[in-house]
Design a protein around this nucleic acid. Structure first.
Length: 595
RNA sequence: GGCCCCGUAGUUCAAUGGAUAGAAUAGAAGUUUCCUAAACUUUAGAUGCAGGUUCGAUUCCUGCCGGGGCUACCA
C-alpha cells in the first residue's frame, strides 16, 4: 500500500513539476491523531523543486492524487504537511490480505545462520537481576532473528575455571564440613555462592590482620594465606590433580543443577554449551602461533602481548609469564572453536554488558589481526546495567537482587492481584498456578525488555513491578478479553470467513486505526531484528493492545445488527489476538485465555 | 588524564531532522443495568546550560555543567 502511494507521488512530481523522484526518497509518515488521514507527506523539502510554497505544493499534489489514484479519497493540508485520506475499501482490502496471510509477520528462511551468545555466568555466584536482563534479551533477540528468517544457534560460554572457582573450593574445604545441596536443602548455585562469599570474608579478615601487623595493603592482599591456598589449588587444577579435579567437577555440578532450575523458570534455553575449561587451551595455542607468525610478541619475562598501538589502543596481555591464559585468550579460543563447529554462521552475536565494550572491541580487532575474515561480522550486543535506586548492585553490600527470588516474588504478586479481583472461578489449582506464572513472568519480561537495551535502566525493589498501564499484564489482559469474545463467537456460530470481509463497505475510525497498526507488524519485526531491539516489539504490542481496548470500549460487537460488520469485528479481534500472541512470544512472554 | 555512553513531566520509559515533544505511573474529575473496570474518558505537568548548521533540532556539530562506565598479569 505504501509502495503504491509512494509511486503515485513520484508520478505526481513527474506530471506536475517534470521532476524525477526516486521512490525511496518519498518518505511517508503516519498522520498524527488530531488530523484526518493516515499517511502524511512532508512537503517542505520539495519547495525548491516545485518552485511553490510548501502549502501550495502539498495542495497540488493532493489534488493530483485524488484525481489519479483510486485508493485516495481525500486530503488536507496543514502548513507544509499533506495528510492523505484513503478509502475505507482500501483498508478493508488490506485487512483481507492480513487476515489471509498465514504466519503473519514471519519471514521465510533466508538461508543464513547466526549464533547468539547470552547468559554466560560465572559458576561461583547465583544469577541475579542483571542476568535476567541478559537472558531475556539474548533469548528474545534470537526469536526475533528467527522470525526474520535466520537459522539461530543459541549458545553460552560457561566460565567454569579460574581462580574464582578455586576460591569457593578452598572455602568449602575449610568450612564446608561436607555440606551438599541434599544435606542443606539449598540450591546448588546458592550453596557454592555462599562459600564464595565466605572466602571473601575470610580473605578480608586476614588482610586486616596483616595490615594491623604493620604490612602495607597491597602486599597483604598478595600474601594472605587463604589467597595462597586458592592459587595453589588453581595450579593443582591445571596439573589435573585428581582430587582437585573431582572436587571441581562436584561443585560445578551443583551449580549447573541450580542454574538449570533457574533457566527453566526463566523459560530460556540453549542449543549448545561451551565450557571455558575446554576452550582455553585453544586460545593459548593460538597465542603461541601468533608469536611465531609475528602477530604477537613476547616480553623478556616470557609473557605474550599484542600491540594495538597502531589502532589507537595499547598493548594487551594474552599469556602471563607462567604461561597461564587470561580472559581475552579464552575468548579468542572460544570464538575460533565456534566457527569450527558451525562453519556456515555469518555472524556471531555476544550479549554482554556494556562495561565490556572495550574488551570486545579488542577481541574483534585481535581476531581480525590473526586473519579471520569473520571477525568483521562479530557483534557485541551491548546492554546497560540494571541499576537500583542506590546505584549499582553490590554483592558486598547485600543489594543484589536474586533471580530466583525475584521471579518467585513476581509470581506471588500475580497470585495476590488475581485473588483480589476474583475472576478465575472454575480454575483448577494447576490452571491457577499456570496463570500466576504466565502473569508474573510476563510482567517481569515486559518490564525488562520494553526499554532500549543499550540504555541503563532502573529497578526499584520497593516499588514492585506494576500490573497496570504499560505492562505485560495489560497486554495479557487484552488478549484474555479477545479470547472471551472468540469463545462467544464460536458458541453463536459467528466465526468469520474470508467472504464475509469482502462485502463490507464502511469502517469506524477505530477499526481503521486498528488495521493501520496491524499492518505495521511485519515491518516492526524487521526493524527489531535489524537493531537487535526487542523494545520495538514491546512498544508495538503495547500500542496494539491499547488501540484494541479503545475499540472494545467504543464499538459493540455482539449488539451489532449488521452481520457482516459483526463478523468483521470478530475477525479483526482474532487477528489482533494472534499478533499480540506472536509479539509477546518474541519477548518470551505467554498470553492467557482467561484472567 | 585519555576513550565511550547517558541527561526529556514528581517518577519510570518513548519520539528514521518534521506538525501543538508521546505513554505509563503518582495527582484531580468522570465511566459498570451493555462482549472481563488488570479497562476506558477528561484534566494538569518535561527536552541540563550556551552557541552553531537547517525552512524546521529532543535528534546533527562545538563548548560547558551533571551522572555512569572503561582505561587489570580479575572474569
Amino acid at each position: 500500500m505504501e509502495k503504491l502511494l509512494q509511486q503515485a507521488i513520484v508520478d505526481a512530481f513527474k506530471a506536475l513539476f517534470d521532476h524525477e523522484l526516486a521512490i525511496e526518497e518519498v518518505a511517508l509518515q503516519p498522520t498524527r491523531k488530531e488530523f484526518e488521514g493516515s499517511h502524511t507527506f512532508v512537503c517542505f523539502p520539495y519547495a525548491r523543486i516545485s518552485k511553490k510554497k510548501p502549502e501550495e505544493t502539498a495542495t497540488v499534489i493532493g489534488e493530483y492524487l485524488v484525481e489519479h489514484v483510486d485508493m485516495v479519497k481525500g486530503f488536507n493540508v496543514v502548513k507544509g504537511f499533506l495528510n492523505i485520506v484513503l478509502t475505507d475499501k482500501t483498508w478493508i482490502d488490506l485487512f483481507s490480505k492480513i487476515w489471509a496471510a498465514d504466519n503473519y509477520g514471519v519471514q521465510p528462511p533466508n538461508g543464513k545462520e547466526v549464533m547468539v551468545e547470552y547468559s554466560s555466568p560465572n559458576t561461583n555466584k547465583p544469577l541475579h537481576l542483571g542476568h535476567l536482563r541478559n537472558n531475556f534479551l539474548g533469548w528474545s533477540v534470537s526469536e526475533i532473528l528467527k522470525a526474520n528468517g535466520y537459522d539461530v544457534h543459541k549458545v553460552q560460554i560457561i566460565n567454569d575455571r579460574g581462580i574464582h572457582i578455586c576460591k569457593s573450593m578452598v572455602a568449602w574445604l575449610k568450612y564446608g564440613e561436607g555440606a551438599t545441596p541434599e544435606s542443606t536443602g539449598k540450591k546448588g548455585d546458592k550453596l557454592v555462592g555462599d562459600y564464595y562469599v565466605k572466602f571473601d570474608q575470610e580473605y578480608k579478615k586476614q588482610i586486616a590482620e596483616l595490615v594491623d601487623g604493620g604490612m602495607d595493603k597491597a602486599r597483604a592482599e598478595k600474601v594472605a594465606p587463604i589467597m595462597k591456598e586458592a592459587q595453589e589449588l588453581l595450579l593443582k587444577w591445571e596439573q589435573k590433580d585428581p582430587d582437585t579435579y573431582a572436587l571441581w567437577e562436584k561443585m560445578n555440578g551443583w551449580v549447573y543443577e541450580g542454574f538449570d532450575a533457574t533457566y527453566k523458570q526463566m523459560g530460556v534455553d540453549f542449543d549448545k554449551l561451551y565450557y571455558e575449561s575446554q576452550t582455553f587451551l585453544l586460545g593459548k595455542e593460538e597465542a603461541m602461533k601468533g608469536v611465531e607468525k609475528g602477530i604477537f610478541f613476547k616480553k623478556e619475562d616470557g609473557s605474550v602481548w599484542v600491540d594495538l598501538t597502531e589502532e589507537g589502543l595499547d598493548e594487551k596481555l594474552l599469556l602471563r609469564a607462567d604461561g597461564t591464559s587470561v580472559y581475552m585468550t579464552q575468548d579468542i579460543g572460544t570464538a575460533i572453536l565456534r566457527y569450527r563447529d558451525y562453519p556456515k554462521i555469518s555472524q556471531q552475536i555476544y550479549t554482554v554488558g556494556n562495561e565490556q565494550e572495550y574488551h570486545f572491541k579488542v577481541l574483534f580487532m585481535i581476531l581480525d589481526k590473526i586473519g579471520y575474515e569473520w571477525a568483521k561480522e562479530c557483534y557485541h550486543l551491548s546492554y546497560g546495567m540494571v541499576d537500583l535506586p542506590s546505584g549499582k548492585m553490590k554483592s558486598r553490600e547485600g543489594t543484589v537482587v536474586d533471580a530466583d527470588d525475584l521471579m518467585a516474588e513476581m509470581i506471588n504478586t500475580a497470585r495476590e492481584h488475581t485473588e483480589e479481583l476474583g475472576k478465575i472461578d472454575g480454575f483448577t489449582e494447576d490452571q491457577a498456578a499456570d496463570l500466576y506464572e504466565i502473569l508474573g513472568l510476563g510482567a517481569l519480561k515486559y518490564f525488562l525488555l520494553k526499554v532500549d537495551p543499550r540504555k541503563r535502566m532502573l529497578f526499584d525493589p520497593n516499588e514492585s513491578i506494576q500490573f497496570q498501564g504499560n505492562t505485560g499484564p495489560f497486554i495479557q489482559y487484552t488478549h484474555a478479553r479477545i479470547a472471551a469474545i472468540l469463545r462467544k463467537a464460536e458458541q453463536l456460530k459467528l466465526t468469520p470467513e474470508d467472504k464475509d470481509l469482502t462485502t463490507l463497505d464502511a469502517l469506524q475510525p477505530v477499526e481503521l486505526s486498528l488495521i493501520f497498526t496491524l499492518k505495521d507488524y511485519p515491518e516492526k519485526v524487521k526493524e527489531a531484528g535489524e537493531n537487535y531491539s526487542p523494545d520495538i516489539i514491546a512498544q508495538y504490542v503495547y500500542d496494539l493492545a491499547k488501540e484494541y481496548n479503545r475499540f472494545y470500549q467504543e464499538v459493540s460487537i455482539f449488539n451489532e445488527e449488521d452481520e457482516t460488520a459483526l463478523k468483521f469485528r470478530v475477525a479483526l479481534s482474532a487477528k489482533v489476538a494472534e499478533v499480540i500472541n506472536k509479539g509477546m512470544g518474541l519477548l518470551g512472554a505467554h498470553v492467557p485465555e482467561r484472567m
